[in-house]
Each structure stands twice: as structure tokens, then as C-alpha cells.
Design a protein around this nucleic acid. Sequence first.
DNA 1: TAACATAATCGGAAATACTAATTGAACAAA
DNA 2: TTTGTTCAATTAGTATTTCCGATTATGTTA
Lengths: 304, 304
Amino acid sequence: MSKLPSLKNLSYLLALHQHQNFNRAAQACNVSQSTLSSGIQNLEEQLGCQLIERDHKSFLFTGMGEEVVEQARQILTSTEELLYFAQSQGKIMEGPLRLGCIPTIAPFLLGDLTKKLKAEHPKLQLSIREDTTVNLLHLLRNGELDVLVLALPVDLQGNQSYVLGRDPFKLVMHSSLAEKLAEPVQYNQLPDNSIFLLEKEHCLTGHAVSACELADSSKINPFTATSLHSLVQMADAGLGATFIPQMAIDRGILSGTDLVALQPSGQQASREIGLIYRPTTNRRTTFRKLAECIAQLLPEPLLK
Amino acid sequence: MSKLPSLKNLSYLLALHQHQNFNRAAQACNVSQSTLSSGIQNLEEQLGCQLIERDHKSFLFTGMGEEVVEQARQILTSTEELLYFAQSQGKIMEGPLRLGCIPTIAPFLLGDLTKKLKAEHPKLQLSIREDTTVNLLHLLRNGELDVLVLALPVDLQGNQSYVLGRDPFKLVMHSSLAEKLAEPVQYNQLPDNSIFLLEKEHCLTGHAVSACELADSSKINPFTATSLHSLVQMADAGLGATFIPQMAIDRGILSGTDLVALQPSGQQASREIGLIYRPTTNRRTTFRKLAECIAQLLPEPLLK
DNA sequence: TAACATAATCGGAAATACTAATTGAACAAA
DNA sequence: TTTGTTCAATTAGTATTTCCGATTATGTTA
């Protein structure tokens, strides 16, 4: 069996892939440019194939190079996890944990979650990143985040998940508009263009539309908002109705408004909340514990 | 960030774990005993924790040590896969592939499979190991096998799987016994102790009993056979009836006998065949291709 | 053309990995 | 008790590898 590539050389390759420049990559690795350069050559020799095409002056990763980067990333992440695991003496709820969360969940979950974690697992150092689903999945894959809280269903791209619970949608509108409506609200009771939603980047939009069977409805106003809070403002100004998740209502997003929350029609007018992690992780027990913590904070926990 | 442990030292640890003796482990690694010894110490220092308890003379892996071994195994397997992948230029259907299969599938699948693979992927070097489900799962975990063909359902122990297809059970008995029976055969038509099964080590037994709703039936003879072929012999000698999977019948296990195959009662009198692989693998595309090949050879393919 | 930027190459220095030999401790046999 | 054996740790010296600084080759920009 030929000799295994060294983790060091693999990390050089990753740095090069990230910076696309030998000097900057070398700096990032705290080695000289010559070291990194020969490290890469070394790696190519050991693997017996070309990883980057040298085009004088510049270079380009080959298809194989990209593939190797992908796999090397996984190996290095696992090794870092091993190191971390050993150094923290196997205390699974201690040390750093980098969590990503979408904007339609974060403000209504993370406050309580950090409070709970601080009480139950004071040595856990939670860092939080709020971003869209696609960006978070990318960061997870790159090893820059450990775990994500997303709304399901979503293309997991090979990641694994715990389903944490269900979060019902409510149809929110000004109390004066709600008076003449019967629950569950049939959308044909509403005027055209009277339902406001978030920008399509937010998965909440898609989930609400499909869960509430609203596809292509003329009821939807083409103007889109950028946050739940602005949706609430618009509804409170009497512009129309909107969908707000129960989590947000429970955390008081409607307080101080004249809005009421009604049950929308649609079989299962809700979204699921899931915890997503790399299939290659070896911190499953940590994530499982975290999943249990989060599930307890959801309107309808259903963690198996 | 502290320095990552080297793959070399991790492999020393694995060897030590396997051989439970510094000298033999060192030999296996082609290094001197002193090298391995200091490698382990080095590792303990880097990880900042004790991996083995030295009890003068002898030693014992600590709980943490066992955990680290587990994770190290995964890292080394991934790295080997990376090396192999690169060296074979990404040709996913070339080079060595170590497959495990249970005894109630192997004789009726692997002949056709090797023939098919030789024709379609001549450079694939398939090695085959036939063993029980639990042993195969152990070998898979240890990285000694790449992929398993098992009968489902089975506790996957965190592994991943493709469902390849369905394999119906048939109730097989001597033609003279079958004459007075109506299909699907109700078991109360049969005398007590007239159904013969395999030893309980074979998952086929459990699958047949549950699929055919036979639990605790007095119809089952307490004598158990060790192979499908001996079951067939016993049935042909007129001792009673038995369950034989369709795969085996299709490959002619009944030829030269006076046995007939009848449809048993029971909602879904069949087992599923699945391809099992480590969740941490990066040879999924290879396994997927293999899964497609195998599925085509099954009585009822249902690979999604 | 001159000045600059980038990656490869080269020679020597520093760090490391490795071995053989030795030590010390436990144990078994004489 | 003595002797011999086994096993892991230690030591000291050697070999190997890794790394850096300087230099080169090549192309780009001013």
C-alpha cells in the first residue's frame, strides 16, 4: 500500500483552494510560499495525479483536484473534531459549537435557547450565524459551521437531520379585517392582492404557500417584505394579511399591535423545524442533546 | 489552534488496539517498538489526554482511548479512500471492492453478479466474504469490508443503505404433500412440527417468521438446518415444508427434486435486499452503480 | 523597458522520525 | 533466591523530512 498523504499537505491544498493564490494560502498556513508549493507537488506525486493545471503565471484546479479538496475537507474536519473531542475530555456539551439559523427562526428561538444552554450546559460556547438556507448549507459543508437549524422540507444535500418539531402558520391581519371571517379562513374570503409574503429567498414563503395550498393565488400581493417584523408592520397598517409562524407569535411579535392570528385553511398549515449536520460528523451525541434542548422550545415538539 | 495529530500516529494507535501488544503492533506497522511507543506518547500529548492506562508490564485502553480509536479508524479509512480514489483517476468502477454477503443470498446472487460485473466493469476487482449479518456489520465498521448485501430489515447501526429489491418467500414441500393444499397456503392446513427453518443465526429465519406471521407457531419444527440446501434436502425427503426465497428458486435450487413452491399466506411474504455502506464513505457513486447492477438481478427490483 | 507579481527551484538549516541498544519492572521457572 | 524471559519505556545517535530564504523563470503592468 502506498503512503497516505499527510494532513498537512491536505490542509495546504485546502488553503490554496480557498485563496486561489500560493502566497496568500501560504500566509494563511503560516508557512513560506516555497513550502506550500512543494507540499502541493508532493501531494500530487503521492496521489499519482494532477490536482492543479499550471497555466504559467496562474493555475486552475482540475476536476480531480476539486474532488480531492472535497474529500480532504471532510478528513480534516473529522480530525479537528477528534482533536477537539479528546482535548475537551469527551465532555460533549463543552467547548465551541457553531450554529447556523435562518432569519425566520433565529429571533424567536435563539434568545430562549442561549438562556437554556447557559443554565444547563454553562461551558458550551455557542456561536451563532444567521443566514439563508443555501448559504448555511454551504458553510456547513465547508466546515465553518457545525450544525444548522432550518425549516423543512429542504434538500439536505447528503446531510443528516433530526426533526425537532412542528411550527404552525397563522394568518395574521388587523382585527377590523378579521371580524367578518370564519375560521379556518378560506382564502376566497379575502380580496385579491391582500396576502403579503417575504422575499422568495426566505424558505418561509415557499413553505407557507405550499402548506396553505396557495400556489399561484391571485390573493398574493407581489410586493415582498424582507423580515417578519416588517410583514407585521404592514399588516398592522391595514394593508392586508400575512402568514406568521406560531413561534414568532409566542415570542410576542404581535404585541402592541391591533393584529389577530387566525387559523388558515389547508391540511397541515405548518412548517417543520430540523437540526442539520454533516453525515461525516462524529459529534452526533452532542447534536442529539442539542436537538432535545431545542425541541423543548418549539410549539409542537416531535423529536423521536 | 493546536496541532492536528498525524495520521501515522493514529495508525500506530489502531495497530496497538488491534494487536494489544507494542511489539506485534510495531511489526505490523513496519517500525521499531520504540517508534511506536513514542508515537503513542506523542499522540497522548497532542490530544492532551490519556489513551491507555499503563499497568507496568501490561496496559489497557481507556474509555477515551477506545473512542479515539473509533474516530481514528474513520479518518484513516477516509484517507485511504481518498488515496485510492485519486490513484485510480476517479474511475469509480475500477480497482478493489470488498463486498460482504449473507449465506442465504450469496450463492444465488454472486455468480450472476460477478459475471455481470466482469462484462460491464472488467477492471473492478471484487473480493467477496460470506458471513452472518452481525459479523459482516463488524467488518464493515472496521474498514475491512467496503459494502454489504444484507436482508432487511436490520439494525443498520448508523450505516446507510440502498434498498435494492424484494425477494418473495415461497413455501416449499414435496409434491405429494402439496396436492391437497389451496394457495395461498394457510398454515393450519399443515400438521404440527412440519415447517423446518434455518438456525436462528440466519436472519432469514426471523424474516420468514415475521413476514409470514408464524410467530410461536406450533407448526415450526424445533430442529434447525444450517443451509438452504440442507433445508431443500429435508423437504425433498418428505420431512415437511420450508421457506425458500424466490432468488434461490430462480437459480434452480429445486431442480432435480420433487418439490413444489407454493404461495404462503401472510400480507407481504417476502424479504428486502439492501446494500449497506458506512455513512462516512466517499465512494457513494461507486456503491450506487453497484446497487443498480445488483438490483437488476433480483426477482423484484425496486431501487429508487 | 523597467518594475512588479507569481510560482517553481535550490541549498542549507532546523525539526522530526527512526533505530538499536539499554533499562527497569513484572513474572515464571529453576 | 536466582536466573531468564517478556514487555514497554528510555536514551543517544542517525537518517529523513520539512521548512525557509534566496534565486530563477515567466508573465503582466506601467
